[in-house]
Amino acid sequence: MTILLFGITKDIVGQPTLSLSHSEAQGLHTAGELKEFLKDNYPDMKKLSSLAVAVNSEYAQDEHAIKEEDEIAIIPPVSGG
């Protein structure tokens, strides 16, 4: 599973994309579970109160199902101007 990271999530992970192995991805069934997985592995993400997940370029609610071949993007709000 490949996850595109935007905004501060890219800075937290330290790279623009995150590749999950087959075994890691197998345990993740929904967008909400993916968020929890990221928060567990990257504790700085716990601080973010709003974090949008897009599955195949569509905004996904927490219960939205995800599959290994989906294109997933993590989009936090950004404030700069």
Partner: peptide
Amino acid sequence: CLFPVMPAASELPSCDENGVLGVLP
């Protein structure tokens, strides 16, 4: 609808803290 809750001031950096490349805005 995208970001329901306003982030706390401590969550995310601003341009002053984080920096921004001149041409981007």
